[in-house]
Nucleic acid binder design. Sequence first.
DNA 1: TTCTTTAAGATTGTCGACAATTTATGGTTA
DNA 2: TAACCATAAATTGTCGACAATCTTAAAGAA
Lengths: 228, 228
Amino acid sequence: MTQDAFSKTLITTASDQVFVDMRREIVEGSIAQGSKISEPELAKRYGVSRATLREALNRLESCYLIERKANVGCRVVALTAERLIEVYQVRSALEGLACRLAADNMAADEVQSLKQLLNQHLQTQRVKEGESYYQEAGDLDFHYRIIKASKNEHLIHLLSNGLYQLIRMYRVQMGMVGPRVSKAFDEHLAIINAIENHDGELAEMLMKRHINASQSNIQAKFERYKSI
Amino acid sequence: MTQDAFSKTLITTASDQVFVDMRREIVEGSIAQGSKISEPELAKRYGVSRATLREALNRLESCYLIERKANVGCRVVALTAERLIEVYQVRSALEGLACRLAADNMAADEVQSLKQLLNQHLQTQRVKEGESYYQEAGDLDFHYRIIKASKNEHLIHLLSNGLYQLIRMYRVQMGMVGPRVSKAFDEHLAIINAIENHDGELAEMLMKRHINASQSNIQAKFERYKSI
DNA sequence: TTCTTTAAGATTGTCGACAATTTATGGTTA
DNA sequence: TAACCATAAATTGTCGACAATCTTAAAGAA
């Protein structure tokens, strides 16, 4: 029994493994967006039976990475601009809530640990140079910690098992690196300060703006990407 | 192929039917909260194979009605006060968003139709007498229409396929009828007015308050229920 | 007695095969 | 040629059986 790095999913069964593997392939684009999924073909490829594969497919559907139609089959979700907006509207509302709850609940040492994390990011050369590390794993980590600090299990599940892989899919496949990195860092700093002051209202507002800015950024990239 | 009344789920396959049936039984309490689910037993009871049953179980897990542990099995979710708070915090954020979007998007004739629905509720004798009709189906219908009017498919799915059955489960099993009915009606009216004026900010705020009030109400009932 | 170990029983995970449905193919007709 | 229908092929839905794991209960040691 092992553990997945991104979603902290415990990998116990064969279908767990297939689920995590397929999820990575879909997020990274190895399995192309919008492509049809053939159960017999994929079962053979992963070396499992169709029953095991279907178990994994069910869970991929739960986190919105594939879509099923009865008696027809599965398709990998297609990344559209409209869908991106929808997802970010939801994300903004939910992470805003998470941030408010974090500001209410977070203990002093947790705040310190979070500040330390951000300092690490600052001092890492890669951040200054705007490399992908921060934007991907680092940013993810920051947001994840705040979500976790909300102490609302339902919310945590909704975000980390539901929305995040989908958001990663957009970001990874758009190749999200660029000038927003340093600006995002400042916004993170402001959010921490609000949390430290237990100012839930402000923390929520800052997080929402932060995510909206992130949305505008990725959306601009999206337009450029589509016009090519 | 038929259709389910509550979630508008299309029932095509055998597992669809089992899913809808089990969901109703869990929501209504026929299958007790916290109880262990035996796959062989339920498969026999519904007259399907275990594979079909497991398909349904997967989907029940997606809408948070049961919880699975690998190699151990499923349990019906247990209704705790903590969980109720968590769910309502999320609901408040999401329906607040839905209400804001509805205020932005809703066409004049849609607003009129919604007002008409509310008038029907008012004129129905049962409402005045505080019977369960309004609180259950009527209230649900009102909220559902606003959610739908948000035009955000992801949000719609999250609420109607995700949270709503769980919320119904609390309400049904607590027996939610009582003096809040008329007050809730007034709140609904205020929300519609805000939507009609396309005042998204106000509409969001009113909806959040409406849901928070509803939470307090059900929570009070919960305490009484638990102390017996 | 109480705790640990072990074996039996029961439950879940996985598999391959069959049935039902959809999709592709090819032939017919207007 | 285009539209329609019938047939064949492929895909999904469902089933029963076996393997792997957990749970329970009995037996033995401290």
